[in-house]
Design a protein around this nucleic acid. Structure first.
Lengths: 186, 186
DNA sequence: GTCTATACTCAGATAGAC
DNA sequence: GTCTATCTGAGTATAGAC
């Protein structure tokens, strides 16, 4: 077997950057090929199902990233709450490049994407919510309060990213991160 | 001159429904034609610049809708505050079909759309913000508070629409509308 | 102003050599 | 496993009759 020219991780990161900024319909195989560092035919070798396969792989990659950088940090009971929340906020800041990048789940939430990948999108978001729900309960919130705070946290992140992108400034996102931290540590 | 088969408003509403649910890249001329009730060539007669022209027309239509249903309601000093806010919330509920439809500004905020229509998108959102800023100041908020409340209101609407679409329930959006009302009328 | 028919480009996807 | 070359269809857009 000939060696891989580009590692799986690098390939996925390249594909992710295109899908997140262009959405499913806007991501062309030429762009995907260029971002992945592989010719179109080579992409089809790795993802026999074509663009749908690539998207599913990127969604799985995103879910594992969220699990590692958010869910597992929030539920790591060996660390004190303050440390976990601070680390989580830093990680979320990094995931969205300080507010310059939007969320791939949002990019894929137009009709074409949601019709094909609805289940995977819902699952990734639920993982995020579950992390914050777990953390909220541990901080003494009721079940009900921890759920509504987790949802509001997700709403704040997504909404501030919409505002930031539209208005051309990362400020709303930066502000929201501070607010989220206060919501859980006050 | 032959009479118009479909009115301008009907045409724009048809185009709007496709752009909002599919985004710019996902909206094909075949779909746009069908939704508008006009054949492709007829669409090009009305919008000589093609898809870009159609999008600009729909953006202008959206802005005038927001002006009428949100901005002018919020700034109508002949009405008491409670009436204006109640009417505004009802109108926003209607604009997004109770949380089942997403915001066209969001659909057009992927790279392709924002690169072409960034100015128009920003302008429409600013109009929304200005309505809430005006209202907040009239309710006795400081300049600073009225701005941050307006931004949070926009974030809440957009974020809850993302959550609603992804999770397949309108509940987050419905909840948020109640919260917004309380933010301004308490 | 609207339509049918058509041009042309680029999209997604495959075949087969190395 | 990666590549060049190619196929097929859908995409945007136009010509010209009515």
């Amino acid at each position: 077997m000939r060696p891989q020219k580009v590692s799986d991780i690098e390939t996925l990161q390249g594909l992710l950057s295109v899908f997140r900024s262009k959405g499913y319909d806007g991501a062309s195989l030429n762009e995907l090929s260029q971002a992945a560092g592989l010719k179109k035919a080579s992409l089809y070798h790795r993802f026999p199902g074509g663009k749908k396969d690539m998207t599913l792989a990127v969604l799985a990659f995103m879910e594992s990233t969220l699990k590692e950088h958010v869910y597992e940090v929030l539920t790591d009971t060996k660390q004190p709450g303050q440390v976990r929340m601070t680390k989580t906020i830093e990680n979320i800041d990094g995931l969205y490049k300080g507010g310059e990048e939007i969320c791939m789940y949002r990019s894929l939430s137009l009709d074409t994407g949601i019709n094909i990948f609805g289940k995977e999108i819902q699952q990734g978001i639920q993982l995020l919510l579950d992390g914050f729900i777990y953390f909220g309960k541990e901080m003494g919130m009721t079940e009900e309060m921890s759920i509504s705070n987790a949802e509001q946290t997700f709403i704040d992140i997504q909404g501030s990213l919409v505002l930031a992108k539209s208005m051309g400034t990362t400020r709303p996102f930066k502000n929201i991160l501070v607010q989220i931290k206060e919501r859980y540590l006050k």
